[in-house]
């Protein structure tokens, strides 16, 4: 399937792309556009004005995708807190990782293409997921 989002990806879009690849569509093709009007007809837009898979109320796009695709995995919801705080920063959640992740993504967007940012952030989100999966099972931070 094709998916479209705004060019110049930052935390929410990078995390959504990871989420889509891991849990929605194993072989996604991502398109980056500057204007919502240039989304290809066969692509599903996300994290763009006017798209369903975007911010709604207090939710960021990552949270919206979790809801729309009924992904109830508590580890994904833990990551959602980090993405939410890195993106919106409204202190709804206590996610101290958010600030670091935000800075890393901002820095990457300065030196890489959008495609490359998705390549690099894939393993970062995989690692975050694994860390929080173990933390949840152990009931404390893994070593």
């Amino acid at each position: 399937m094709r998916w479209a989002t705004r060019a110049g990806v930052h935390i929410d879009r990078a995390a959504c792309a990871w989420l889509i690849r891991r849990h929605v569509d194993p072989e996604p093709e991502f398109v980056f556009v500057d204007d919502p009007a240039s989304v290809p007809g066969d692509a599903t837009p996300f994290d763009m004005r006017g798209a369903d898979l975007s911010h709604h109320g207090d939710d960021c796009s990552f949270e919206t995708i979790l809801r729309r695709y009924e992904l109830g995995d508590p580890v994904l919801w833990k990551l959602a807190e980090i993405v939410h705080e890195a993106d919106i920063d409204d202190e709804r959640f206590d996610a101290p990782e958010a600030r670091g992740v935000d800075v890393i993504l901002r820095g990457l967007s300065m030196i890489c293409s959008d495609e490359r940012v998705l390549e690099i952030t894939g393993p970062i989100f995989d690692g975050l997921y694994e860390f929080h999966r173990r933390a949840l099972l152990l009931g404390r931070e893994p070593a």
Binding site: H55, H56, G57
Partner: peptide, 17 residues
């Protein structure tokens, strides 16, 4: 700037909703 434009866009969207 890139950040404020995005934030304002989301708020505009929410106002519509």
């Amino acid at each position: 700037d890139a950040r404020t434009r995005e934030q304002i866009d989301w708020i505009a969207e929410e106002i519509g909703e």
